[in-house]
Simulated assay, not measured.
Amino acid sequence: MSFPYTGGCQCGQIRYEIRAEPLTLYVCHCQECQKQSSSAFGMSLTVAVNAVVIVQGQPKTWTRKADSGREVKNLFCGECGTRLFHQRTYSPNTINVKPGTLDDTSWLRPVANIWTRSAQPWVNISDQMLNYDGQPEDVHSLWEKWTQQQS
C-alpha cells in the first residue's frame, strides 16, 4: 500500500487521511474495546498524531477511563456514531485509528494481542504474535514487530 491511506465513517460525513506509515497494529481484547466494537475485540492502528488529517467533517469527542485506569479520548462521527480514533492522554504524540474505517483494509496484519485475559474463550490467540495479559509496559516491542513484518 502507499499513503495517504484514506478512510471515514459509515455515513461519509467524516473523511480522513493518514499521511505517514503507521507505527503498529494490534488487537485489544479488553472489555471496553469489546463494548465499543460490539464484537470480541477492537483493533488499533497507531499513527503519529500529526500524520492524521481530517479532510472532511469534524468528529465529536468523549473521554473515558480505560481498563488500565488511564484516560482515553474517543473521536467519533456525531451523525452515524462510527468510532474513528482514540487518543491516549499518556501518549500525546500518537493516535490510534480504528482500522476498520479505512477504505482498504486488505493490507492490515496485526502484530500483537493485548488484554488477552479478557479475551472471549472462543477466540484463538496466535502464538505468531506478541501476546500480553494486560496493557504492555513498553509499546516499542509492538513497533519493532510491525517494522519487521513490513520489511
Rank of each mutant, 00 (worst) to 15 (best):
S2F: 15
P4T: 12
Y5F: 14
G8V: 13
C9T: 02
Q10S: 00
G12V: 13
Q13G: 12
Y16W: 03
R19T: 13
A20K: 05
P22L: 03
L25V: 07
Y26A: 11
V27Q: 14
V27G: 04
V27D: 07
V27L: 08
C28K: 08
H29D: 10
H29I: 09
C30P: 12
Q31M: 15
E32K: 12
C33Y: 14
C33L: 09
C33G: 04
Q34V: 07
K35V: 10
K35I: 06
Q36W: 14
S37L: 00
S38H: 12
S39F: 10
A40C: 10
G42F: 14
G42M: 03
S44H: 15
L45T: 09
T46M: 15
V47I: 14
V47M: 04
V49D: 11
N50W: 08
V52H: 02
V52T: 04
V53D: 01
Q56N: 05
Q56T: 05
G57E: 05
G57R: 13
P59E: 00
K60L: 07
T61P: 03
W62K: 01
T63I: 13
T63Q: 12
T63H: 11
S68H: 04
G69A: 04
R70E: 06
R70G: 10
N74Y: 15
N74D: 05
N74M: 12
L75Q: 10
F76V: 00
E79R: 10
E79S: 14
E79N: 13
L84C: 00
L84A: 09
H86P: 01
H86A: 06
R88E: 02
T89C: 08
Y90S: 07
Y90N: 11
S91W: 15
S91E: 11
P92C: 04
N93S: 12
N93H: 14
N93W: 12
T94W: 09
I95C: 06
I95N: 04
N96L: 11
N96G: 06
P99Q: 07
P99K: 03
D103M: 04
D104W: 09
D104N: 07
D104T: 03
T105S: 04
L108Q: 03
L108P: 02
R109L: 13
R109E: 15
A112Y: 02
N113H: 08
I114G: 02
R117L: 13
A119Q: 11
A119F: 10
Q120Y: 12
Q120A: 15
P121Y: 15
P121N: 12
P121K: 12
P121S: 06
W122N: 07
V123D: 15
V123I: 14
V123Y: 13
V123K: 14
V123P: 10
V123M: 15
V123T: 11
N124L: 15
I125K: 04
S126F: 10
D127A: 09
D127E: 14
Q128R: 04
Q128M: 08
Q128W: 07
M129C: 11
E137P: 03
E137M: 05
V139R: 03
V139I: 08
H140E: 07
S141F: 05
L142R: 06
L142K: 00
E144T: 13
K145E: 11
W146Y: 15
W146R: 01
T147W: 04
Q149Y: 06
S151P: 01
